[in-house]
């Protein structure tokens, strides 16, 4: 029995969005780990937030200064800023101009 065109299309799409995506994620995740390990070996530290994630963290800290988790958030924010200033090669896509503009938040 031959499969209909629609069945072939559904099967191909299923393979694409499930094993295809899973394989792509696995490869990306493994490459990401390799890059992190290489950076850690070379400079002993890596930045922990992307530009967008760090910006959101800063906004959240400013909006919720008295939140019970705010001290930890400030600590994480400042740690990332200090790391970005220290290292030569950031893990995330930071430009020198973006790093230059960053300021730590008073803890």
């Amino acid at each position: 029995m031959a499969l209909s065109t629609l069945a072939w299309a559904t099967m191909a799409l299923s393979i694409l969005v499930l094993p295809g995506v899973a394989t792509a994620i696995l490869v990306r995740s493994m490459r990401s780990e390799d890059r992190k390990l290489a950076l850690l070996e070379r400079q002993d530290n890596i930045d922990s937030y992307s530009p967008r994630a760090l910006e959101e963290l800063r906004e959240w800290i400013q909006t919720n200064p008295n939140d019970p988790y705010a001290p930890e958030a400030r600590e994480r924010y400042n740690e990332c800023v200090r790391t970005l200033r220290e290292i030569d090669d950031p893990y995330y896509d930071w430009s020198p101009e973006q790093i230059e503009k960053l300021e730590t938040i008073e803890e």
Partner: peptide, 16 residues
């Protein structure tokens, strides 16, 4: 969720 997302979930994340 917002606190979880900004403080920890997006920390060292492979996808935003």
């Amino acid at each position: 969720p917002e606190r979880a997302r900004v403080i920890d979930l997006n920390r060292n994340a492979g996808v935003y």
